[in-house]
Design a protein around this nucleic acid. Sequence first.
DNA 1: CCAGACTTGTTATAGTATCACATGTTATAT
DNA 2: ATATAACATGTGATACTATAACAAGTCTGG
Lengths: 164, 164
Amino acid sequence: MPENPAGALAFCSHDHAVCTKAALAHADHLAVDKALRLTPVRRRTLEILLEAHQALGAYDVLERLAEDGFGNQPPVAYRALEFLVEHGFAHRIRRLNAFTACMHPDHAHKPVFFICKSCAVVAETAGTDVQIAVEKAAQSFGFQVDRMNLEAVGLCPTCQEQAE
Amino acid sequence: MPENPAGALAFCSHDHAVCTKAALAHADHLAVDKALRLTPVRRRTLEILLEAHQALGAYDVLERLAEDGFGNQPPVAYRALEFLVEHGFAHRIRRLNAFTACMHPDHAHKPVFFICKSCAVVAETAGTDVQIAVEKAAQSFGFQVDRMNLEAVGLCPTCQEQAE
DNA sequence: CCAGACTTGTTATAGTATCACATGTTATAT
DNA sequence: ATATAACATGTGATACTATAACAAGTCTGG
C-alpha cells in the first residue's frame, strides 16, 4: 500500500475492505474501553461511512440505514452521527454538509481536511503543525481553544494530472 | 485602543463607528482599483456586516436589507454575500451558518476564526503560520490548496474571567 | 423488581440555500 | 447614438439541512 508522509490515505490506492474492517474492530475495542454504547444503529452508521469511504450527507446515511431496517426519519441519522463525532469515530465537514469516518481514531486530534474540488475526495490528516500554530496564535490573545477543524479546498494529485 | 499581537480586534474594545467607516472607505477604493461593481445592495450588505460587528446569518442580513427597501427574498442576500466573500470583503463561517466582514481586507489571506462558545463573538486573524503549516502538509502529498479556512471554538478571554 | 438514565422511533417544523425566469442596468463596440 | 452582450436585481417556488418534542422501548444499578 502506498504511503505518504502526512497520512492522507484517501489520495492513495488501498484496500477499502481491509481498512474498513480494521476501523470497525478498533471502534469495538474503544467502545468497550470507554464504556460507550456502540449500538447497532451507531455501529452500522460508522460502517456506512467507512464503506462509502467518502464524505456522506446525513440524508445519504439515513437512506442506507432505512434500507437496513432502521428508522427513516432524519433524527435517526443525525443522532447516530452526532454520537460518532462526539466520541471521535467520525468528523463533520461543514463545507460539504457531510460526515466522514475518522482516519486516525486512535488518538485525539484536530482534523485537517483536504477537499478536492474536482473529484470531491476528502483526505484527513492529523495536522499537528497546524494545531501548534493555532494554539500559539490563540495564546497570544488569551483564547482557550476547545476544538477546531480546518477545511482546505483545492486539487488532489490525481485531478492535477488530468488537468494538465 | 488596546491591541493584541495577532490582531484579534474582536476581543478588544474599540470604536466600531470608526472601523466601520474606514472599512467601507477602503472597500470603495478597492472596488475602483479592481473595477468591481460595489452596487448599493452589495455596499449596504457590507455595511450591515460591519455595523453588526459580529457574524450574521443570511436571513438576518436579508431582513435588514428589506428594511432599506431592497428585495426581501433569500437570493438577494445570498448573492450580495457571495460577491463580498468572492472578493475578500467578507468571510463565511460554516460552523455558524453565518457571514462576517473581513477584518484584514487589505491583503489576501486564509482566515482563521476564533469563536467563543459562550458569548459567540468571532475574532479573525490572518493566521500566516497556520497557512504555512497547511501548505507544507499539502505539498507532502501533492495537494494544491486553493482556499482554506479554520474555525476554532473555545472561550474568549472575557468569558474565561467570568467563568472563574 | 424498580427507578432513572439512556436510546430509538415518529411527527412536525424550523432554518439554510439554490433554481429558474423575468426585468432592468451597465459597459463596449460598432 | 444604438445595438448587443454581460452583468445585476427582483420574485416565486422549491430543495436541502437540521432540530424540537414527545412516546415507547431498553439497559443498568440499587
